[in-house]
Amino acid sequence: MTITINGQQVAVPSDPRVSLLDLLREHLHLGGSKKGCNQGACGACTVLADGERILSCLALAVQYEGRSVVSIEGLSPDGSLHPLQHAFIEHDGYQCGYCTPGQICSAVGMAGEAKRGLPSAVTADLAADAVQLTHDELRERMSGNLCRCGAHNGIIAAIADTFGRPAVAEAAE
């Protein structure tokens, strides 16, 4: 009965009421993932489960037995920065920083969805194989992550810089 968290095997909590978010923050002292609303409305608790972005506040930890979870602390090995973290610095994608770990984990998951060709609510052609991560696509796909400071412009710029350009370049070829 274990969950792999950032590469480490962790025992599943004996109380099934423990959320994945509380397992990270309270049991493992991984404070990067934030408890913003604790009801699935803000995205600050976003982590990756087997590479897919999920809300750890609405996830019962016990349901993730046998799965591999990555939080902001495990996104890049050995204390190095993920390219998206560099881009957040470059584009000033934050103000208070509270939503940042969720934004970054969400964007990494989002990029995987786009790479698989998953359409969004603003994709005009549902039959298209490739997704172009335009400004509108990024805003729609990142709408589950709120920033009360209003740093969305910098956030979207950082994500576009990291994940938008290769997709555009591929499409142009």
């Binding site: 995205g43 976003t46 972005r53 999920i54 809300l55 609405l58 989002m110 994709t123 796909r141 589950g144």
Partner: peptide, 12 residues
């Protein structure tokens, strides 16, 4: 489906 919730919630 794509009009509902967020990417994270649709994954769950």
């Amino acid at each position: 489906i794509l009009a509902g919730a967020s990417g994270q919630i649709r994954n769950m």
